[in-house]
Design a protein around this nucleic acid. Sequence first.
DNA 1: TAGGCCATCTGGTCCT
DNA 2: AGGACCAGATGGCCTA
Length: 356
Amino acid sequence: MLSRLFSEVLPDVQRLAADWVEDNENEDCKAKVGEHEPCHLGEDELDEPQEGSSRAESEMAGDDDEDDEVDEAEEEECGDESGGDKPKKRGPKKRKMTAARVERSKVRRLKANARERVRMHDLNSALDNLRKVVPCYSKTQKLSKIETLRLAKNYILALGEILRNGKRPDVVTYVQMLCKGLSQPTTNLVAGCLQLNTRNFLTEPCSDGTRFHMPSSPFSVHAYSYRCSRLSSPHYQTGTGVLNLRGHSYGSGYEAVYPPGGTSPDYSSPDYEGQHSPPVCMSGRQQESSETDRNYHYSMHYSGLTTSRPGHSLSFGPSGGRSGGAHSENIPPFHDVHLHHDRAPPYEDLNAFFHN
DNA sequence: TAGGCCATCTGGTCCT
DNA sequence: AGGACCAGATGGCCTA
């Protein structure tokens, strides 16, 4: 089902991400699959097939007539005289389980297990690709499968909405769409990413002197890489990279993707459907290699500054948005912010950072 | 220790 | 017949 989703909904996204991924993780994955040994296969169970496996056993029948002369007793054992309260099974009479047949069944089961492992690894690779193209990506702390799918769905819907409207979305709306149905940690994560992104829109002057590059296309996407050690652990706070979101301290570790927005997410807004979340870890610990840094087209580095506004919504942006707050009051200053402003075509812009 | 997430095994079903 | 796909079961790992 997941693979169908990917193939139907995200073929382009996957293709774009694949270039970046395939040389790395896919190869590793395949290698692991190849060398993986079937674990705990339960030889005993295979030697004595379970009752439920009768179909499988019968499937492999037909090519071993040479075994038919074996024990008549076995036939009674696995015959269709189920007796008792079990309904009589229809279909071809089950062949008796000879030693050779059992052996073949074993081999077939092993092969099926190996195929299943490969299939699941492929599926996981696709999920990894998907993680890289949804907002908030971290190599060190992956979103769970279900959260990745939910966020991807919301992201697609949000982008589709942008396409339909042909204009920049309100950040509040954007956050709401992205966070719909997400767990609290993921909601916090996405919102935190958006907060940081919006800040940079406001604080980082563009090369051409303008305050913020607002491409003509609504698809301008800006990504920032943060550092995070563990998404599900709210207590990872290190000396750097911790900021506060809705009264909680957040570090970073994630790469976020956003359309440009002018207003802030307002968690106190009645429109906000996401759950208000407990603190989520976004540790500022510099865990990843400098090479990883280089790989991210957009990267953000900031020193550990924390704002504490318990019980308050995010509030930033020059226009104030619904929260109406001035970002300078709520946002810790950033140091050494690296932001690239590209004027690439919409879709290139959208995906550019995934390949850098 | 409970709960969440995950990988793996397994049998059933469908398709080629 | 064999492979792909699916869902249930199981056990391991991690975190609160």
